[in-house]
Nucleic acid binder design. Structure first.
Length: 566
RNA sequence: UGGGAUGUAGCCAAGUCGGUAAGGCACCAGACUUUGACUCUGGCAUUUCGUUGGUUCGAGUCCAGCCAUCCCAGCCA
């Protein structure tokens, strides 16, 4: 790290690295860096978690340290193994390898012992107040709380009661174990926080062994200590909990002294990153599942066609800081375009076909043209594309009464069919009743084979096409933002985030014409459909007989922008 | 006069002994172009760093006050 810069890139170091550098300098952890990513298995990971993952694993990577994956499964009423499997898959897919794979539930015995130790030190007590009473006793943001009448029970009584809580002698909610700290603390988290509750729920790993479960504030530092974590990185909302984290670290009788550091979580416009609301979208059928390509989940983005490289690049670019911020989704789109521009094979696909008959082209002739697979990558080579008398072009590439500066096809005008010939529109066949354009009749100039006119005349427009005789028909799914509102998470008076759903977030095109190569597309493989965007063969619905592609992101379109501006 | 945190461009974000505002995205203009893509060039905070004062030869950086925004009153994490 020279000049405050990162080793490899020119990116400046962030405040977490500063803290770690400081610790390394003072020898606080003997130069060790051991982080952890601690998801609760109660939902699918989303783009916000991707940031956290990149930070947790990334810091370990940068310092040749370790990063554990730890499921923070201390609340069995919400958790499920379905989620742990998806989380593991998502992390692997992002390209990270965890050092240890652990579960908070592995430490339930240790946590219980820690609680007993606290009781013995007079630092915890069993409280019989009801949940409502505890809330009342807690005070408010501006007034101190008052002490529980059970606060001064003897160590012996507390020990007895707590062991009977564990033994299942008391009903759910009837008692809790609380840390004895300070009911007058200005920090509400320190007002004798509950650290154990009675909860009879089947745990996905420990089954029915326990009927008491530790609370996050008590469990998390212990998990970190047990795993010998050095830097416990979490999001800003836990900043207020740090004094309690430290209280537990210092009082629970374990050796390790991990350090909690908080950073701002990711918000992105037009995007929701609330697990609860995402769950609702799935459960109530607003989307087709956690992996619906419109979802900001890792699995949704994967299905959509995002690459792990693009997501990681995005996470690098947004930086790490403590300012609550909302990143523009345009940056994410830029990252995937940049990645795919380098790597994706170019192909021709007509999404909204318009039939074009080339009147002067021989009836049965089929020519093959060389088409480069990727102009950005000469190594990608080329392929043959068949051409014949009838081709399909994009409906939007023809305009009967073209606006100024339109340089695609229009009556009497010439355009280039990419890789093939210059064609000129001779006449338009329309439905007499509706006026709908049914097909175009064009002529081609045999001298322009390959797309160049020997007389040197310039043709500004180049459009893509597919030979009708050789086309494969299939489906394309066009996605837009799931929400119309830039900040769907913030519900205005009397409204719900559901009111902000974009009714056009999915458009299905059923009669798209693909060049032949696309019938062989491997599910999950990505292409650039020339002039249209980046697309991904759907991982589950792709069939050779009927290809199905998801639009990952459209290409930038300065013409469309100019048109919309008028 | 509850506590904690944060305020640098439309959006992120550097700026760490005070020395004269990085970079990216977006946007605008132009060049190139057999993708209106890509690429390239130029522009984009010089009465300016939330704001007002102060210290100083000099302040985004130091000091004081004020303002705004976010988080916290789960037996959720």
């Amino acid at each position: 790290m020279e000049n405050g810069k990162d080793r490899n890139e020119g990116t400046p170091i962030n405040f977490i690295q500063e803290a770690i550098n400081e610790d390394n300098l003072t020898g606080r952890y003997g130069g060790r860096v051991h982080t952890r990513f601690p998801p609760e298995p109660n939902g699918y990971l989303h783009i916000g978690h991707a940031k956290a993952i990149c930070i947790d694993f990334g810091m370990a990577e940068k310092y040749n340290g370790l990063c554990n994956l730890r499921f923070d499964d201390t609340n069995p009423s919400k958790e499920d193994t379905e989620y742990v499997e998806s989380i593991k898959e998502d992390i692997r897919w992002l390209g990270f390898k965890w050092d240890g794979l652990y579960y908070a539930s592995d430490y339930f015995d240790i946590m219980y012992d820690c609680a007993v130790r606290l009781i013995k030190k007079g630092l915890a007590f069993v409280c019989d107040l009801s949940a409502d009473e505890i809330r009342e006793y807690r005070g408010t943001l501006t007034e101190p709380g008052k002490e529980s009448p059970y606060r001064n029970r003897s160590v012996e009584e507390n020990l007895d009661l707590f062991s009977r809580m564990k033994a299942g002698e008391f009903p759910d909610g009837s008692r809790v174990l609380r840390a004895k700290i300070d009911m007058a603390s200005p920090n509400i988290n320190m007002r004798d926080p509950v650290i154990y509750r009675i909860l009879r729920a089947h745990h996905h790993r420990t089954g029915d062994k326990w009927c008491i479960y530790p609370m996050y504030d008590f469990a998390h530092p212990i998990e970190d200590m047990v795993e010998n974590i050095t830097h416990s990185l979490c999001s800003l909302e836990f900043e207020d909990h740090r004094p309690l984290y430290e209280w537990v670290v210092n009082n629970v009788g374990l050796e390790a002294k991990p350090r909690q550091i908080e950073f701002a979580r990711l918000n992105m416009n037009y995007t929701l990153t609330s697990k609860r609301k995402l769950l609702q979208l799935v459960k109530d059928g607003y989307v087709k599942g956690w992996d619906d390509p419109r979802m900001p989940t890792i699995s949704g983005m994967r299905r959509r066609g995002y690459t792990p490289e693009a997501i990681r690049d995005f996470c690098d670019r947004i930086g790490v800081a403590k300012t609550s911020s909302t990143v523009d989704i345009a940056l994410l789109e830029h990252c995937i375009r940049e990645d795919l521009n380098r790597r994706a094979m170019r192909v021709m696909a007509v999404l909204r076909p318009l039939k074009v008959v080339i009147d002067n082209y021989p009836e049965d002739l089929v020519e093959e043209f060389d088409a480069e697979n990727n102009p950005e990558d000469p190594q990608a080579g080329s392929r043959k594309v068949p051409f014949s008398k009838v081709v399909y072009i994009e409906q939007e590439d023809f305009c009967e009464n073209p606006p100024k500066n339109y340089f695609r096809l229009s009556p009497g005008r010439e355009v280039r069919l990419k890789h093939a010939y210059l064609i000129k529109c001779e006449h338009v066949v329309k439905d007499e009743k509706t006026g709908e354009i049914l097909e175009l009749h064009c002529s081609y100039d045999p001298e322009t084979r390959g797309g160049n006119a020997p007389d040197g005349r310039k043709v500004k427009g180049t459009i893509h096409w597919v030979s009708a005789a050789h086309a494969v028909e299939g489906e394309v799914r066009l996605y837009e933002n799931l929400f119309l509102d830039p900040n769907p998470g913030e519900e205005r008076e009397g409204e719900s985030f559901l009111d902000y759903l974009n009714p056009n977030s999915l458009e299905i095109l059923n009669s798209c014409k693909f060049e032949q190569a696309l019938a062989e597309a491997q599910p999950g493989s990505r292409y650039q459909f020339l002039r249209m965007g980046y697309f991904c063969a759907d991982a589950v619905d792709m069939k050779k007989e009927r290809p199905v592609f998801n639009r990952i992101v459209p290409l930038k379109d300065s013409w469309a922008k100019a048109v919309s501006k008028g």
